[in-house]
């Protein structure tokens, strides 16, 4: 799962959002590290909708701008939580206390 995909799913966990709503939420969640471009966002959304991880959920027109909303599916929520678990495990491998330091200490 790419970083963009991960943050698109993560931003939809709490609420349904439209395109730019996802961009802002992803930036917020990642502390500004993930700046989704429109091209990347819709590439990810098209794929996620195709895979059934995200569903389109209504649309409205605001000041002449078409806003289509998206919400995460049960399958999508499961996928992003699995990914989070995997990354937590990966992080543990390099974090000083729990993993590597202990192993290195033990080796000496």
């Amino acid at each position: 799962m790419s970083e963009a995909t991960y943050y698109v799913l993560a931003s939809l966990l709490d609420e349904r959002l439209h395109g730019y709503g996802i961009v802002k939420k992803a930036a917020l969640l990642s502390g500004g590290a993930v700046k989704l471009t429109t091209g990347t966002l819709y590439g990810a959304l098209d794929r996620l909708v195709g895979q059934g991880l995200v569903d389109a959920d209504g649309e409205e027109e605001v000041e002449g701008r078409l806003r289509r909303y998206y919400r995460i599916s049960g399958k999508g929520a499961e996928a992003v939580r699995d990914e989070a678990t995997r990354m937590r495990r990966a992080a543990r491998a390099v974090e000083p206390r729990s993993g590597r330091a202990a192993i290195q200490g033990g080796g000496r």
Partner: peptide
């Protein structure tokens, strides 16, 4: 099919 939506997101940004 997708242009108006992409344009809206671009315009918001």
């Amino acid at each position: 099919t997708r242009g108006p939506e992409l344009a809206a997101t671009l315009a918001d940004g």
